[in-house]
Computed example of a mutant assay.
Amino acid sequence: MKEIIAIVRMNKTGATKKALVDAGVAGFTAFKVMGRGQLVDDPAIVAERKAKMMALAGADEQDAEMLIDGFLDGHRLFPRRLFTILAHDEDADTIIEAIMAVNRTENGVGDGKIIVVPMLDAIRVRTGESGEEAV
């Protein structure tokens, strides 16, 4: 048994849910979380992301620029969605591929993380089943 933890962009939540259902996942849990990944050192990528974010910001450019700089320099956290999925060992690769397929972008940064953890046990509260039967 495996626990698959996926941290994805907020705008990829719907696509991720659909991909999980299409992959045959019986159930999953999703949380709104805040976090950040590794800082991007490439000034060209940072400048491109800042320009795109400023174009979307609209109203008060000074406040928007301060927020955007905070995101890009690591002082602020990004909103993300965290999915937890319990899976049989033989289903884990299919689920991981489904998550990766819908979350990979051409942005070069921030597509998320997938963490796979072995599970010792699972128990279905309603029936008391444990182990593989509970997944």
Rank of each mutant, 00 (worst) to 15 (best):
F83A: 01
I85D: 08
R76Q: 13
E129H: 07
R49F: 09
M53P: 11
G24L: 07
V21P: 08
D93H: 12
T13K: 14
G35V: 03
E3F: 11
V117H: 04
D111A: 05
T105H: 05
E65S: 13
V109C: 05
D60V: 04
G37A: 03
E90M: 14
I123D: 00
I85V: 15
E61T: 07
A87N: 03
A26W: 04
Q38T: 11
Q38Y: 13
F31G: 10
E129S: 01
M100A: 08
P43L: 02
R49N: 13
I95F: 02
A59M: 05
A44F: 04
V21F: 10
L86H: 14
F71W: 00
E97W: 12
G27W: 14
T127N: 04
M10N: 11
L86Y: 10
A92K: 14
A87G: 04
G24H: 07
R80G: 13
V46N: 09
K50I: 00
G24E: 01
M119Q: 06
E90Q: 15
A122K: 09
A101R: 15
L77T: 15
E97R: 12
T127Q: 07
S130G: 11
P79F: 06
A55K: 08
K113S: 09
R126I: 00
V25K: 06
A51T: 10
D42G: 00
K12Q: 08
G37H: 00
D22M: 07
V8S: 00
V102W: 02
A51G: 04
A57S: 03
I85G: 10
A23L: 08
I5A: 15
D91Q: 10
A47D: 12
A44E: 12
I7N: 01
G14W: 14
V116A: 05
I99K: 05
R80I: 06
R36G: 04
V33T: 06
L120K: 11
R104V: 09
E106V: 08
N11F: 15
E48G: 09
N107Y: 15
R36K: 09
R104W: 11
G112T: 00
A59Y: 05
K50M: 09
T127G: 05
A30T: 14
R104N: 15
A19Y: 02
V21T: 11
V40T: 10
M1E: 05
V135F: 07
A15G: 07
E133G: 14
G70Y: 07
F31W: 08
E132H: 14
K18I: 10
L77I: 09
L56Q: 06
T127F: 08
P79S: 01
F71P: 05
F83E: 01
A30R: 09
L20G: 08
M34S: 10
D91G: 04
G27Y: 15
E97P: 12
D41I: 11
E132M: 13
R49M: 15
